[in-house]
Design a protein around this nucleic acid. Structure first.
Lengths: 247, 247
DNA sequence: AATAATTTTTTTGAATGCAAGATGCATACA
DNA sequence: TGTATGCATCTTGCATTCAAAAAAATTATT
């Protein structure tokens, strides 16, 4: 109403039942791209103004994102973008590796021709983004690729849980992709997914498992290496633990 | 008709910030115990009356439960208790087995003495419920036991995803526990979890894996056997799938 | 001046109001 | 008799309003 600089303070009325989804997807995109930084507080009123809706759909959107663990809500003190918990990275990697191996195994076992087509399209898009040197596109395409693999397994439970972890992985990747590009150039990132496609195309379950595991290890190794060498940590180290962990 | 026994249509005012949680937990309990049957529609107004609050916190609660996949929301047509998808049971079992094995492995590897204590308490509670022949208590204790195992692994990602699957497992179990008790008596259900405890106490990771896998297989086998022999299916077979199925 | 207490402001949580979409029934028509 | 159409009612989704809790600011007290 009064905010002319807001990104989409359009006066067009969404169709009934779409406002909350609109806000949810908008916020999710900004969270996954780190446009909204981890730990950043989310002001309901401000968001509602920026989307041109009332607080109700914003509230609903934040709730949904909270269930996805993309935001954490503090009782009576609003919500913040879920901090990236560096201390919990090993835990995350353990969970991701497990799901990634299993999801890729399932994809190799149960994929249809249509699934394989979709996966190959995603892989091509990823390679295109790499050739174009577009970090943001690479992250999106990488995410889409693995989502497609997850769906090719035709197990909704696995696809969903794998997808949730991929959201977090995307944010971890976002943190160090610039570093990766600077240090490794395009060589190491090119054709990342071709061995995935090969194994899935050949329906080679064991090879799919190995590929997925190798991918996890590579991701972990690169992230930790980036952490060590990153001169400018433009992210906050969140030392607080979500749950009682005492290591 | 189900609201003649409104659990807490009291006029006591919850403290601010607790209404939605109260409704959420109340609904969750009734969903997990099948007091609210799969596929049953959830009327916001009715629920709000039965809890003595307005529709806002009910809406929030339903959203949260939707994120837990305990209810599914149909656009502009409200929400229903998540149907139990019998066609998807094999998919569910695949996901559960994976997480159960991994979660139990982690518990054997990383459990503290306090964790082991908690697990043993839960196991004792379960055995007590079995001896008392109380099906509802058995379900609750079984759920609590496996949740405790999940938490003993000290990996929040795994504990969370395992816990989500355990909610579904609890509903599947609810369907056929009466049958199990009738056909197998107390012999087969007693000391179900003692081998879990042994492996976790001994920190024997491989044995924990085997125990967890055996448990999964036993659960699957019993459920399928119950399905074949159940003379009175007091549940609705929901053939429709939540996503992408032509209605 | 520093700190504690109190008031003011801001922000969240819940209640209410209102309009869009859906459901059901009655009636009209083939 | 079966099917289509229009109206009435209900439910949901969003907006608005109200109240409680936390944050900020001001005043008071030592």
């Amino acid at each position: 109403m009064q905010d002319s600089t807001s990104p989409d303070a359009t006066t067009i009325k969404y169709r009934k039942g779409s406002s909350a989804s609109e806000v949810c997807e908008g916020l999710r995109r900004r969270i996954l791209t780190l446009e909204l930084r981890p730990g950043e507080p989310l002001d309901e009123t401000q968001i509602s103004r920026s989307f041109g809706v009332s607080r109700s759909p914003v509230r609903e959107a934040i709730n949904r994102l909270g269930a996805e663990r993309l935001v954490v809500t503090l009782p009576n003190r609003g919500a913040v973008v879920a901090p990236i918990d560096l201390m919990g990275f090993p835990h995350f990697m353990a969970a991701l590796d497990l799901q990634q191996r299993f999801a890729t195994r399932l994809a190799a076992r149960h994929r249809t021709t249509a699934d394989l087509d979709r996966i190959e399209v995603r892989a091509a898009e990823f390679n295109a983004a790499v050739r174009a040197f577009e970090p943001m596109d690479m992250l999106q395409a990488n995410y889409d690729f693995h989502i497609a693999v997850g769906e090719a397994g035709h197990n909704p439970y696995v696809a969903r849980q794998y997808g949730e972890l991929l959201s977090d992985a995307r944010r971890y990747l976002h943190i160090h992709i610039e570093f990766l590009i600077q240090t490794e150039g395009r060589s190491l990132l090119r054709d990342q997914h071709d061995d995935f496609v090969s194994a899935i195309r050949a329906r080679d379950v064991e090879e799919a498992d190995r590929v997925a595991h190798r991918h996890s290890l590579q991701f972990e190794e690169r992230f930790l290496r980036a952490l060590r060498h990153m001169p400018d940590p433009n992210f906050r180290i969140e030392a607080d633990t979500a749950e009682g962990d005492t290591p």
